[in-house]
Design a protein around this nucleic acid. Sequence first.
RNA 1: GCCCAGGUGGUGGAAUCGGUAGACACGCAGGACUUAAAAUCCUGUGGCUUCACGGCUGUGCGGGUUCAAGUCCCGCCCUGGGUACCA
Length: 917
Amino acid sequence: MASYDFREIEKKWQASWKQHANYKTPENFDRPKFYALDMFPYPSGAGLHVGHPLGYIAGDIVSRFKRLKGFNVLHPMGYDAFGLPAEQYAIQTGQHPAVTTEENIKRYREQLDRIGFSFDWSREIRTCDPSYYKWTQWIFVQLFNSWYNRETDKAENISGLISKFEISGCNDDLNQFTAAEWKNFSEKEQSDILLNYRLAFLSEAMVNWCPALGTVLANDEVKDGVSERGGYPVERKLMTQWSLRISAYADRLLKGLDTLDWSDSLKESQRNWIGKSEGSSLFFKNPESKIELEVFTTRPDTVFGVSFLAIAPEHPLLNDLCIGNERDQALAYSEKARNRSERERQAEVKNITGAFTGSYVKHPFTNEDIPVWVADYVLGGYGTGAVMAVPGHDSRDYAFARHFNLPILEVVAGGDLSIEAYEAKTGQLINSSFLDGLEVKDAIKKAIEAIEQKGLGKGKTNFRLRDAVFGRQRYWGEPIPVYYENGVPKCVAESDLPVILPEIDKYLPTETGEPPLARAKDWTYNNHPLELTTMPGWAGSSWYFMRYMDPHNETAFASKENLNYWQNIDLYIGGSEHATGHLLYFRFWTKFLYDMGHVPFDEPAKKLINQGMIQGVSSLIHRINNTNKFVSAGLKGEYETTAIHIDIKLVTNNNQVDIEALKQWRPSEFENAEFILENGILICDSEVGKMSKRWHNVVNPDDVCDNYGADTLRLYEMFLGPLQDAKPWSTQGIEGVLRFLRKLWRLFHNNPEESFVLSDEEPSKAEYKTLHKTIKKATEDIENFSFNTSVSAFMVCINELQDLKCNKRKILEPLLIILSPYAPHIAEELWSLCGHNTSINNAEWPAFNGEYLIENEFNYPISFNGKVRFNLNFALDMDPKAMETEILANEQTSKYLEGKAPKKVIVVKGKIVNIVI
RNA sequence: GCCCAGGUGGUGGAAUCGGUAGACACGCAGGACUUAAAAUCCUGUGGCUUCACGGCUGUGCGGGUUCAAGUCCCGCCCUGGGUACCA
């Protein structure tokens, strides 16, 4: 073989790795472990584009590196296979989602295989596989059978709570009953009470209902009032729903972040989503009507600035509060506000609306009458659904008071209330009785003390994090393993799991609006009806990383032995778009399983890297409005035009459109079109955005592998820039990477016959220096996830060896080893040509020898008072005093120093960098 | 609005602790080889200035600390991402 034939080489080694199961994770536990996981993909019909493999390549490089370093590496891959697109497709075509999913997976696998990943495919999992979702259902059963014990601050079996009720009854915020009463409750009553505590529970709650998708969605699945998938409008609707009590873990999810090596921005996203806020509850009462309204505030110091109370349109006491002449109007307003969709609600944020209820309550400190208003800026689901409005020091209350002409009181000095609310948490309290003169910080403390002392409320912490709606009115998901006996929800016995997803004739809701599972024949368990909703997409992904440790275990989701060995993920790579979804849920499930003693770790991933999105560059040509004429980009200013996306394959690197290809691409549109050219060519504009079929800008990794090879693709994706950064895909520069691999190849074939030649001669110092410099850099870069600079270092190394005409075994073999994580195919080929009959995968990462980098002399430019620079040579081990003498003796220096002794000689890393006089 | 990240040549991007800014690659220009092309190799390439040696200037803007600032501090401007009546 003379020239570098990447097609042949890559095909050959991929087949060999498969045949010899090179990347199968060893089943012994005698080495240190390393668990490198990529977020598994949802297998969509569109296949992979060049953005998908970015994170996988980085993970693969680290995995290969760790293997060479002697670690037992777990590096698996699988598919997040339940989900909406396959079901939407099924509705349109009648094709079973399982069939579509299977096809898509096959396609994904082909694409992944071409890139040469070192996945252990014997551990592949699919969330839609019954042997997998058996355990997803099993975890659900554990959640159902558990409650969160605040005293021990962990989840426990619900039986403990039941015995507590049996012995001493209950007296908490939710329920009050005696032990005797508990025993007299019916089974249904007991069940309903327990649902208030179970971690998987059924409740009636306002949910995000998406009519177009026919299902409810969790908060993180709704963006800007529309569904994340499909972008359909979302409404609020009161429904009985399965939810998971993630709110019980709010504080631990927050605290756990401090122990994780995740990016600051991602941790910050989770902190904001959890939204911890500390403050106080406070009761406003009306002695006549006996009404008590509880509010939550983070600014109890401003209590003397309260001029009205505002309650949410969903507030439970609304009906009692709306009285007198105001009753009808206030109720009508609330009704209207409640029924608005999320989108309307958000669009109208700036419109201030509200209504007076007719009721008054007493101010807890001044005993003044405070009017109670209903206002849609108060959210039913947060805090107590009621706020004490302090217009002087809260901008929303201020706007409301301005609009309805309510009093604005100043209680913290420092602002100008005629212009805006003064919200800063600094300044002295005024007009506030016993708080006068205090700084805000101290006033908050004192106010809470006073509130607690008088029994008006107590210090309290609120979280923004809501419980996660878990039921989906869809077909293509895990059945929730629950049946109903006389209206009481019960879990299917663990021995009867999995509850297999039944076959149905159509993937649509029934005529009566029930979920698709209602179509299933005999959808019962021991003659009792089974639950009709299925689990959301994030259920299967919340624990999949554990299944990889022991994927074929039939008696447990993973054996204790395997869990103890592999522990949690050492390196998790995936997109930051999962910050408030998957990455929160899988922390929650891990903590729960930890509490219940099923796993020995309480965080799933120690280190997380978010790879940036690779964006697509789309091409736009300009059509003159109402004509079939297209004008080159430089001339578009002279016409009224509309931009049209065309396939990027029709365009060269410098934005020149191939008109003949364009005509063939869409003959109906372009066959008879006229083109107004500039300098004889048609130029288009380009735009950076998401890679999508819609914009005709998808780049398929298969094409890159065909034209440049998998090794070049791998190196180039790393070379593009820092892994974490978003960057547009461009093939400018990919030639440079291919050129680098050719140069490497030629080091071994540098003779007229271009035959493989390797020298066993002892390398020179310069050659060793080049090698060890590169070993150092490559090792450090992988540990710092700085892959782009590593690729550069390899390029420098090859350029230097080329200049040295080096073809020595002692240099090239270690070099192949450190390059193999990036470009495994060419490394393997050359390794084999070097005479090895085992895979380079079994080699050992070369040791770095720093001695080759030490120089005896250096020549370094020296600044003089930070200005003039000149060069001086010194021995490296010369002491600073001797250097000073040397400097003064030097003709050039003394000229600048005018014979004066230097005040200061600045030495950095043993080198003089500046002389100060 | 709030929170986070970032702003370096024509382009993507380098620059561990503050220590020769622009590594590496693309692009561009010139040259070698070739009948020619491709491929390959060599040279140059921040700006201004100089025949040249060199000099001046330069990391979004304005100030500061330091012998020395892309890097640290203060105040702005801009871009990307997250979040949004969360009391």
